[in-house]
Every structure is written in structure tokens, then in C-alpha cells.
């Protein structure tokens, strides 16, 4: 399985990848994207099986990336990993077609709860 991790913070991408490993999802290919526009391009070029994306990013936000994906007919599972964990943001995420929203700060249990059933 190929997982695309999009976050403008390189440090946070590393923390997300480390937490995936700690949660037991350690035998997957990881592709990194540094903003929403990069993520959207890599959705096409890399054909990931899952996108884990930050919300607030320069160039293109995570929600804009998700909306662009869905508009183009992509049904690739998409989840947010963001500091924006309010009920309002969760609703916006779900309405745009996100499967889940992991709020920062998180730990491996949060990842396991959100990703069990999504990652084979």
C-alpha cells in the first residue's frame, strides 16, 4: 500500500511517518508532499492508496486538495492530520469527503483508531 503524507512542515511529516510505524503500519510505501498543490500532483503521478494531509498549508490547503481530487473523480481515501480539530472543521472535512480527521497532537492509538479498516 502506498500512503501520501502531505504537510508543509518537514518535521511534522517525519512525526506522522514515525507514528504510522509505531501504530504498526510499518510495511507501506510512503510518499511525501510539501503542500496541497504538491499533494494533488502526486495523487496523479504516484497513485497512492491513501492520502494523509494537513489542513493549513501554503499554495493549496488540504481541503482544497481534497475538493480538487473529488471534482476530478478521484475516490482515493483521504484523511486529515491537523491541529484544526474543532467540531466545525470535522464537519467541513466530512462534507468534503474525508474519511477521518486526526487532531494534532496525536499518538499511535489515535492513528490505530482512525486507520484500522482503512489500511489493509
Amino acid at each position: 500500500m502506498k500512503i501520501l503524507v502531505a504537510d508543509d512542515s518537514r518535521v511534522m511529516r517525519q512525526i506522522v511517518i514515525r507514528t504510522l510505524r509505531q501504530a504498526g503500519f510499518d510495511d507501506h510505501d510512503i510518499v511525501e508532499a510539501e503542500d496541497g498543490a504538491d499533494a494533488l500532483a502526486k495523487v496523479s503521478s504516484e497513485s497512492p492508496d491513501l492520502v494523509l494531509s494537513d489542513w493549513n498549508m501554503p499554495n493549496m490547503s488540504g481541503i482544497e486538495c481534497l475538493q480538487a481530487m473529488r471534482s476530478s473523480g478521484s475516490t482515493i481515501p483521504f484523511g486529515f492530520v491537523t491541529s484544526e480539530g474543532s467540531p466545525e472543521m470535522r464537519e467541513k472535512a466530512a462534507n468534503a469527503g474525508a474519511l477521518f480527521l486526526i487532531a494534532k497532537p496525536f499518538d499511535e492509538d489515535t492513528f490505530r483508531d482512525a486507520l484500522d479498516g482503512v489500511i489493509a
Binding site: 491537523t82 484544526e84 480539530g85 487532531a103 494534532k104
Partner: peptide
């Protein structure tokens, strides 16, 4: 700061 600020905002 982003994580702390995001949770203060929430």
C-alpha cells in the same frame, strides 16, 4: 505553536 494555537482556537 501551530498545534498549541490550533487547540486554543478550537
Amino acid at each position: 505553536a501551530n498545534v498549541v494555537g490550533g487547540n486554543v482556537k478550537a
